[in-house]
Amino acid sequence: MAQHSGNEHEHEHENQHEHEHEHEHEHEHEHESHGSLKSYVIGFLFSLVLTAIPLMVVLNHWLAGTAAKVVLVGAAVLQFVVQLVYFMHLREEKKPRWNLLALIFGLIVLMTIVGGSVWIMTYNVVSH
């Protein structure tokens, strides 16, 4: 971020070179970029809170049954999103977002395997 504000100043003076500077920005973004200390600290704090919530819910018996399960799994999924955004920088990916597409495809396969197995085995009379 500090680099950006530094270069902005130059922009005002050298409008002709603005285009080149933008190119530099892109280059920096792709190569160096990947987050600031602030984004890592925010991500870390989020992940601590998202771990503390399920712990409190379970250890203090605040919720039971389905409600507790929803909170637990919800916190885990949010934690996944936090790691993707703040630590793995998925949002900073440039336009043909192959990484995101590959991830979505992987998640569909994952859901099919996990959901499908659980669904089949829940109603499997032989296994009980």
Partner: peptide, 16 residues
């Protein structure tokens, strides 16, 4: 992502 699917299979097995 393929490793994710590996773990997904193990999670499915465990849950079952």
């Amino acid at each position: 992502i393929t490793d994710c699917i590996l773990f997904g299979s193990l999670f499915a097995t465990y849950i079952v």
